[in-house]
Nucleic acid binder design. Structure first.
Ligand SMILES: [Mn+2]
Ligand SMILES: [Mn+2]
Ligand SMILES: [Zn+2]
Ligand SMILES: [Zn+2]
Lengths: 144, 144
DNA sequence: TCCTAATTGAAAATGATAATCAAAATACAT
DNA sequence: ATGTATTTTGATTATCATTTTCAATTAGGA
């Protein structure tokens, strides 16, 4: 369903751009779509390597970038020097709560906030193409 | 006024932490406080070097970090791989509009958004310690 | 199948920041 | 003012994630 939709979107991207469908890209895509969200490249690579030792780190990096370009994934930077990716379909959007204690990540959407962002941008004459809202703090567990 | 207040805060930090007041720290602090906001370390270093060729890059990095620790400055990451700093006094806060066309940065505050962030955090059992809200798009000029 | 262009993986390069370390500077106690 | 322990500096080197390079491999159309 969602999963196959993303695979289809990527397949079309590959075709449109004159790229090639390869064994590695298929494997990485399958693995990525069935993995937990917000994994760092390193983490994803380590886990992937367990099943597919032949796939190189450079290929993983390159392929994740392609996923982002194709629109089925999004690059995330939480400020720890690691690039993370999460898969999402066109039109999906959410922001993040990040626990600085245990690293837990919660997702949220808030239409009112987004509307207010638009107001802010309007009042400055800006057109918003994207935004990033991250709330850093302690999750319920880590508050003790 | 504001400027001397920040210098005073840093002076107290230096004393409290058992650090030493040095010529380099004074020069960098003066330069930083009178520079435009959101400068990258590299940019600040280049401009500083024009007047003070003897000061090393490592010292600039270290000193800016100290400013952040002391509370008179804030580290910013706009996702371009460059660390930026801006000076602000305790209690000051604002978020950013970033023009992806010309790099212009506008600052804004929105109490309603911050309140809604608190609500979101509450509903997830989180306590917020900090947050990052950045709106990316085109400024009035760059929209054409 | 053949051919060409794209892709791969290992290794090297990159780029920003951090660590190292001998020499210099600072803050105190005398 | 002088000595002295400690911190700081700046040049250099290391780090670390990501990107680039490039020869070998692979994909996919003719
Ligand atoms: Mn997410
Ligand atoms: Mn600012
Ligand atoms: Zn937590
Ligand atoms: Zn602009």
């Amino acid at each position: 369903m969602k999963r196959d939709m993303k695979k289809e979107v990527f397949r079309e991207f590959i075709a449109r751009e004159g790229l090639k469908s390869t064994r590695q890209r298929d494997i990485i895509l399958d693995f990525f779509l069935s993995s937990k969200r917000h994994m760092s490249v390193e983490e994803l690579y380590r886990k992937l390597r367990a099943r597919h030792p032949g796939i190189g780190y450079a290929t993983v990096c390159r392929t994740l970038k392609l996923f982002a370009q194709s629109g089925i994934a999004h690059e995330i930077h939480f400020g720890d020097g690691q690039t993370r990716y999460e898969h999402l379909v066109e039109g999906e959007h959410h922001d993040h709560l990040v626990c600085t204690g245990c690293g837990a990540i919660a997702e949220f959407e808030n239409k009112t906030i987004e509307d207010l962002q638009k107001d802010v941008a309007d009042s400055h004459g800006f057109i918003i193409h994207s935004h990033k809202l991250e709330l850093y703090g302690l999750c319920a567990k880590c508050r003790k």
